[in-house]
Each structure stands twice: as C-alpha cells, then as structure tokens.
C-alpha cells in the first residue's frame, strides 16, 4: 500500500534519483486539515450514504427486490449493503492516503470477476457507486441538496473555505470513477 509520499518515493527510486517535486507534497501537507475534514465528512455519514445509495438503486429498478432479483431476500440485500459499505470504505482510505493503491490492491483487484461469478448485475452496482459519488461530493462540500434530502438533511457545520474543497471533491470523484471503470 502506498500513500502520496511513498508514491513519490517509489517513482523517484525507479530512476535512482532523489525526490524532486517536493512542492506537490508541501501542498498536500498545507491542505492536510481539509483532507482530514473530507475523510471525516464521509466516515461520519457512511451508513446514511450506503443505505441511501442502495435504496436509490432499488428505487430505480424495482425488479431487484422481487423474487429472483439480486436484492431478494433480506440475506442478499444485506450482502449488497455490506458491499456498498466496503467500496465506500476503501474509497475513504484512498482519499486519506492521497493515492489509489489501497483501493486497487485490496478492493478492486478481481472484484469484477467475483461479481460476474456471483451473478451480481454490473449496471446496478455502478448506479449505487454513482449515487455514493454524488453524496461524497455533497458531504465534502458540506452542501447537501435540501430539496433531495428533505427532513434527512445532514450537515457537518458551517463553510470553512470559500472553494468548498473543490480539489478534494475532484479527487474523491476520481476514486469513485476508478471503481466504476473497474466494474464495467
């Protein structure tokens, strides 16, 4: 498993050079608290995000919870919730590390083949991941949609930085995209 720092070291070692681009790592350090807040925003809302994403996926495709569907009976629905949580957890790890290696090695490696063998439908899984991607962006920005969330609106606090951590939103989205492309 690598993080942003060891990634820089491994690529420098490939050419037996010293690590030259210290500037990018300094930026990582300088925005460290933002990153921790973003990780906290996802971790604190994880179970809400997971159940919403799976519920949303089912809403759009009721067949999943009818007899023969992949979320029927409860046992398989529970497996689905567990898997969504696992994917979200590894995305959170990747966001904390600033590098996708933990997500690749421990979650995505062989996931597509496993799902194919188990008969898990890719399109539904991808849809749930897409919903979690949107949720993660909203929680990192701390800008969840009032019209969608209604009474369940969750906020972390007040705005700390003006750009609402745009770079971290982009980074988190890229990890979700990685999951989606690994599955499809």
């Amino acid at each position: 498993m690598l993080d942003a720092f060891s990634r820089a070291v491994v690529s420098a070692d490939a050419s037996t050079a010293t690590v030259g681009d210290i500037g990018a790592l300094k930026a990582f350090i300088a925005s460290g608290n933002r990153r921790l807040d973003a990780v906290n925003a996802i971790a604190s809302n994880a179970s809400c995000m997971v159940s919403d994403a799976v519920a949303g996926m089912i809403c759009e495709n009721q067949g999943l919870i009818q007899a023969g569907g992949n979320c029927y009976p409860n046992r398989r629905m529970a497996a689905c919730l567990r898997d969504a949580e696992i994917i979200l957890r590894y995305v959170t790890y990747a966001l904390l590390a600033g590098d996708a290696s933990v997500l690749d090695d421990r979650c995505l490696n062989g996931l597509k083949e496993t799902y194919a063998a188990l008969g898990v439908p890719t399109t539904s899984t991808v849809r749930a991941v897409q919903i979690m991607k949107a949720q993660a962006a909203a929680h990192i920005q701390d800008n969840p949609s009032e019209s969608f969330a209604g009474a369940k609106l969750r906020k972390m606090g007040s705005i700390v930085v003006e750009d609402r951590c745009a770079s971290l939103v982009a980074e988190a989205s890229s990890y979700f995209d990685r999951v989606i492309s690994a599955l499809s």
């Binding site: 993080d3 060891s6 996802i42 971790a43 790890y93 904390l96 590390a97």
Partner: peptide, 24 residues
C-alpha cells in the same frame, strides 16, 4: 511502504472500520 498514513489505514482495514477520529 510503511508510513503513518499507511499504518493507520492498514489497522483500520484490519478492523473493517472507517477511519476514526483517533486515526485522523
């Protein structure tokens, strides 16, 4: 590669939990 970040992530992963506030 062992660092503070990877150690924290490895132990959270071993327990199957999200990064806790003490991890952060």
């Amino acid at each position: 590669m062992k660092s503070v970040l990877t150690t924290v992530i490895a132990s959270a992963d071993a327990a199957g939990r999200f990064p806790s506030s003490s991890d952060l």
